[in-house]
Design a protein around this nucleic acid. Structure first.
Length: 983
DNA sequence: CCTATCTCTTA
DNA sequence: GTAAGAGATAGGT
């Protein structure tokens, strides 16, 4: 570099955040990938590269570089651990743009520079000094005040969004001090965003005035006693040390050993085809056209580059030769000829390449010390992508302690054929299983200290510029949360599989590995044993644990390469991005909070139930004339239908007489005493064993609350399921059962709020099937079942007999379930022929329903799946079965899935939006549980009244703005001390 | 000890 | 008629 040369330094990280907030949100048309900041970035780069002379910069660059922050952890954290500690995670739709912007930089053939331990600002300061010393001029493309200390005769700044040059006069005008005093000024004012303390009560105006008066910070601090204003004087004296620390935090380092020499930053003419391919892939049409014209490229002849969401690897893949990972800052070689694909072609190729992957479990490494771990973290950062898995002591994430973790990093692009993966396991808390009652086993040798390893891991997992890939990451996040570690920027292979293939098969890692890789991973049983002889994972020998754990990370990474491209290829990006991935964290928080359950209430109920059941059992034995196991359907059947000779109803699959409640009720109605007692006995013992006895065992000893586990990928339709304990089947229908709900309580000073959607599935049906009468009825807010009865039977709603309404209600539910005459007859206790008449009548009155059902069945038959209103798919591969029963069952399920699934999508949307919305009411209300159409919250008494309308609003508007439903959604919400009264 | 069956709870 | 999870029993391993 020489006199007359001009270096442009773009503050890439700063630009991303500014553009995100300043520019209107923009998404890629084909798949909804958020690209607003990327678009602004590309336009800015292009403008600066080719026509900076026409802007207020007024010069053409000869050298050019884009600088990024490497990670959130820098040398400043050593000075002051709280530095940038309060910065919150970037918005969900900004995260994927970090990686894309790096890729954009490469597409422009510009050096992309970042360095561990330093902020972008330090690299900018260093390059600015080097250029200055070489006699060149510098323009820093940023408007960040932190960089203004660099401004001087040879260095100026440029605000590209306002097209405004920032020189010495501009800095003085804005801050009241010249650039060289900016450090002192910022030391006094501090910075709440970066958590730089400064001196309380001193803002920019006061700081400028003080610096003007005393000359510089040291003089000011030395002579602070002279300040007249009492409070200000005391503050400055008391917080002088804070100001000194602040000064070191804001002072930029200009002596960094930068990764590229100045001369490597020479600006080359853009590579037209390469850049056009990228811009086309991003669907930036007008910029594509401008670039194509300026570089004399035939845009029509260039294939769009595939740029996938969160792409760490995709972005780097096409222009990367296998095994030749480029170091940070190295520009992509201009001579590479990129191979670009349609999403479908890429997905297909990946799937084919993945089968029979060479997985060698003996090649995995065991990380024994921090240095090794550091080097793996650095490698992960360089690739921008890492698969991650934890090993723990328990399946219950709320009680699991960390035993170790594994990482897997792709070394080559899979386009090169076989994907090359390096994987490792870091054991942290393995013990010798020889401990007896007196002394626990000691640590196995060769493990690094847990705390130090966690610190290192935290830096990687919380770095949003590195994509973390896991299988069921909600579990890992839950475990890590207890160690103060979160995961920012992630993909979950279980959720990917669920979005792509719900209904096709399981989504567990072993199933996915066999399905996609043709590989059977080592099972947990293989390393830990099973049953009584099982040992805790912590006692597994480290070499065995390494093979098992590292393989999980390896397999997860390979699965991601197969599954992720399918998202764009199948148009399911939106479902994954909006309904699945963000919900994982929401559920993690809900599970972590748990709900308070009153032991005393349950124990009292248990006693009452035991008494009642014992009394009934005595009567039952008396009536039966012998003692038998009342809980055994087989023995009971022998008594009822053998010994007593009662008329048997239906038989079970295995040929046994059924003793179901339905059969017993019928016998009771015919005047038999014993069946009635059995029904009552079963109710009491069910409540006792499943609820009052089992629930206390789920109270976590640490938190004293019950933490259910929500499964995100368990149902075909998109509903959640709940287990350990299942809180989605807590009794409500009978008075006896409802007593169990009184044990679910709020903490003192708080209330529980229950908010549930009214008739959400019928509303969804009205919307998807376009039923005018239903739509109108919901708009008018009338009783929907009475309206149905009125339409069908010609009975006026006024004074309608309850039996008539009951039948209409059963029909409405039947429709949602994919009605059959058999089922409806069963439900209503009427003849099949009569039920058939009802159904015919219903279809006459609501012909749209019949059309919807036929169309849905046809869709399922043709495509193998049906779709919810938000695009979620539910697969029914057996719908083409030659078995008529099997076929009919699948048809009914297919009819139900879009209705149940759309309702599930709606509440998922509400849940994703709920947490930020609750902040507005004071921020102390916490979402605890979901029961399909109901959300349960815990709120301080003082906040409840304020938060209820907010909750209702979020839920009622959950479909918007993506979808403006033909039917309004209605939510009822109530607060009380316990769940029974709130519901 | 593990798995299948039956029953019952919810939306 | 849809979607789930769980407890008790019974029978095979």
């Amino acid at each position: 570099m020489k006199h007359g040369d001009h270096l442009f330094l773009v503050d890439g990280s700063g630009y991303i955040f500014r553009a995100y907030h300043a520019l209107p949100p923009l998404t890629r048309k084909s798949d909804g990938l958020p690209v607003g900041a990327v678009s602004g970035f590309c336009n800015m780069l292009w403008k600066l590269m080719v026509s900076a002379r026409d802007t207020s910069v007024g010069v053409t660059p000869t050298h050019f570089a884009v600088i990024f922050d490497y990670s959130s952890k820098t040398f400043r954290n050593e000075l002051y651990p709280e530095y940038k500690a309060n910065r919150s995670a970037p918005p969900e739709d900004l995260v994927p743009q970090f990686a894309i912007i790096r890729e954009a930089t490469r597409a422009f053939d510009l050096p992309c520079i970042e360095m561990e331990g330093f902020e972008a600002d330090d690299l900018i300061a260093t390059y600015a000094r080097l250029a200055r010393e070489a006699g060149g001029d510098v323009t820093v493309i940023s408007s960040d005040k932190d960089l203004m200390q660099l401004v001087g005769p040879q260095v100026s700044m440029y605000d590209s969004m306002k097209d405004r040059q920032i020189g010495v006069p501009e800095v003085i005008e804005k801050w009241g001090v010249p650039p060289e005093k900016m450090i002192d000024l910022q030391a006094l004012t501090g910075d709440s965003v970066d958590n730089v303390p400064g001196i309380p009560g001193i803002g920019p105006k006061t700081a400028a005035q003080l610096i003007e008066e005393f000359g510089d910070l040291d003089t000011l601090l030395a002579r602070a006693g002279e300040i007249k204003q009492t409070k200000r004087r005391e503050n400055i004296i008391e917080h002088a040390d804070k100001a000194r620390i602040s000064r070191e935090l804001v002072r930029l380092r200009d002596d960094v050993e930068v990764p590229e020499p100045l001369d490597a930053l020479v600006l080359n003419p853009p590579d037209g085809p390469k850049l056009v391919a990228f811009l086309k892939g991003m669907e930036f049409t007008s910029l594509t056209r401008r670039v194509a014209e300026a570089t004399d490229t035939d845009a029509g002849a260039v294939d769009a580059a595939e740029v996938a969401i969160d792409a760490g690897e995709e972005m780097r893949g096409p222009d990367l030769d296998p095994g030749q990972a480029k170091s940070a800052g190295e520009a992509a070689g201009a001579g590479d000829s990129p191979s670009f694909d349609t999403p479908q072609a890429l997905a297909k190729r990946r799937a084919e390449a993945a089968v029979g992957a060479k997985i060698d479990t003996s090649a995995y490494e065991t990380l024994r010390d921090i240095e090794e771990l550091k080097s793996w973290c650095a490698m992960a950062r360089e690739r921008g992508i890492v698969a991650f898995d934890t090993e723990t002591t328990s399946l219950d994430a709320m009680q699991a302690d960390l035993v170790g973790f594994s990482l897997a990093i792709p070394l080559s692009a899979p386009e090169a054929g076989d994907l090359t993966v390096r994987a490792c396991y870091a054991p942290l808390a393995h013990s010798n299983g020889v401990g007896d009652l007196l002394g626990g086993g000691g640590d196995q040798p060769g493990q690094m200290p847990l705390r130090a390893a966690l610190d290192e891991l935290k830096g990687l997992l919380e770095d949003p510029s590195v994509l973390k890939i896991g299988q069921n990451l909600k579990y890992d996040m839950l475990v890590l949360a207890r160690y103060g570690v979160s995961i920012e920027s992630f993909d979950d292979t279980m959720l990917l599989s669920y979005v792509l293939d719900a209904g096709v098969g399981g989504h567990g890692m072993d199933a996915l590995s066999e399905r996609w890789l043709g590989h059977k991973p080592i099972t947990y049983k293989d390393v830990a044993g099973s049953g009584k002889s099982a040992i805790p994972f912590a006692e597994v020998a480290i070499d065995k644990a390494t093979a098992y754990a590292a393989e999980d990370a390896d397999v997860t990474l390979r699965l991601w390469h197969v599954l992720k491209p399918r998202l764009a290829a199948d148009g399911l990006t939106r479902v994954y991005e909006r309904l699945e991935r963000p919900l994982a964290k929401v559920l993690m928080h809900m599970e972590r909070r748990g709900i308070r359950v009153d032991r005393q209430i349950l124990s009292r109920l248990s006693g009452e139930l035991a008494q009642g059941a014992a009394a009934l059992e005595a009567e039952i034995q008396e009536l039966a004339g012998e003692s038998f196991n009342v809980g055994s359907p087989k023995q009971l059947g022998d008594i009822l239908f053998g010994k007593m000779g009662l008329p048997g109803g239906s038989k079970t699959k295995s040929g046994q007489w059924s003793t179901s409640a339905q059969v017993l009720e019928d016998l009771a109605a015919a005047g038999h005493e014993l069946p009635r007692r059995i029904v009552d006995w079963r109710q009491l013992t069910k409540l006792k064993s499943t609820y009052t006895d089992a629930l206390p065992g789920f109270i976590n000893p640490e938190t004293n609350r019950v933490h259910t586990s929500f499964a995100m990928a368990a149902t075909t339709t998109g509903r959640l399921s709940s287990s350990d304990p299942n809180i989605q089947n807590i009794p409500v229908r009978t008075a006896e059962g409802r007593k169990i709900r009184t044990a679910f309580i709020a903490e003192p000073g708080n209330v529980l709020i229950s908010a549930d959607y009214s008739q959400i599935e019928l509303r969804v049906l009205a919307h998807v099937a376009h039923i005018p009468q239903l739509t109108q009825a919901f708009a008018d807010g009338v009783d929907i079942h009475a309206m149905t009865a009125s339409e069908m039977f010609g009975v006026p709603v006024e004074g309608m007999p309850s039996e008539v309404r009951r039948r209409a209600k059963a029909i409405n539910f039947g429709i949602i379930y994919g009605i059959s005459a058999f089922g409806l007859a069963n439900q209503l206790g009427i003849e099949r022929s009569e039920a058939g008449d009802y159904i015919r009548k219903y279809f006459e009155r609501f012909p749209g329903i019949k059309d919807y059902m036929e169309a849905t069945k046809a869709e399922a038959r043709d495509k193998g799946y049906v779709t919810t209103i938000f695009g979620r798919r539910a697969h029914y591969p057996e719908i083409r079965s030659s078995n008529p029963q099997m076929r009919a069952f699948n048809e009914r399920a297919a009819i139900n899935a879009p209705i149940q699934g759309s309702a599930a999508d709606i509440i998922r949307r509400a849940m994703v939006r709920m947490e930020p919305a609750l902040e507005k009411a004071g921020g102390h209300t916490r979402m605890l549980l979901q029961v399909h159409d109901e959300l349960i919250f815990e709120a301080p008494e003082a906040e409840a009244e304020k938060v209820i309308p907010l909750i209702v609003e979020v839920m009622e508007n959950a479909a918007l703005p993506a979808l403006d439903m033909a039917v309004p959604l209605k939510v009822d919400a109530r607060a009380a001390k316990n769940w029974d009264e709130a519901h």
